[in-house]
């Protein structure tokens, strides 16, 4: 019986997610899988994503995993990461593509010509370690306020319902970097690459009882 299924739809390297979960929870059985049955039977599901959202949406559908992901997102502890967060929303400006529509809102691109308060140009993609200002959700247990996590993305989510927001970061204006709804939690940054704070978040997810 797989405890944590990591959804594999052919977009990028998922081993680092699996290795990070194994590191914090050695007794948990993990599987990187493209099998809808395994996803349906798993206790928990991680939904990662890399690359461009139109490609991710296309590959998810091509592998027949769309309904398995929709079911999991509504029924069991579910964590979206990076594009796996963005795909939960209704629409993305990246390729003008529809998302899964589980959460109300859209995915927008950082504008060009961003500058910090010293006048330095801010690059897109937003790449590196940024502070995460978080709320009181159980997945933040033991993670200090404004801890840094590793980001790499050019698009960010804008939920229509402010109650979904579980964390924000700044580049240079605030943007949403974590959302939650019942059994679902999703983040823009990469917990599997965010050292101690990221590992703690994954450990909290594996133990989470929503």
């Amino acid at each position: 019986m797989v405890s944590v299924a990591i959804v594999d739809y052919g977009m990028g390297n998922l081993r680092s997610v699996e290795q990070a979960i194994r590191h914090v929870a050695p007794d948990v059985v993990t599987a990187v899988t493209d099998d809808a049955g395994v996803i349906a039977r798993a206790d928990r599901v991680v939904f990662p994503g890399q690359g461009a959202m139109p490609d991710c949406m296309r590959e998810l559908a091509a592998r027949g995993l769309r309904s398995a992901v929709l079911d999991a997102a509504r029924s069991k502890p579910f964590m979206g990461i990076c594009i796996g967060l963005q795909m939960l929303f209704e629409h993305s400006a990246e390729g003008d593509v529809a998302g899964l529509g589980i959460l109300p809102g859209e995915v927008l691109r950082f504008p060009g010509n961003l500058h910090d308060d010293k006048g330095n140009k801010l690059k897109v993609p937003h790449m590196g370690w940024n502070n995460v200002h978080h709320g009181a959700h159980a997945l933040w247990d033991g993670i200090s306020q404004d801890a840094r996590f590793y980001f790499v993305h050019s698009y960010y989510v804008q939920p229509r319902d402010a109650a979904l927001v579980q964390a924000t970061s700044e580049y240079p204006v605030p943007f949403v970097c974590a959302v939650a709804q019942e059994n679902l939690f999703a983040v823009q940054f990469h917990p599997e690459k965010s050292h101690a704070a990221g590992l703690k978040l994954l450990q909290n997810f594996v133990q989470w009882k929503p």
Binding site: S16, Q19, Y150, E192, H195
Partner: peptide
């Protein structure tokens, strides 16, 4: 390294 070090 990737199994022990969780940074990029």
């Amino acid at each position: 390294v990737a199994s022990q070090v969780f940074i990029p």
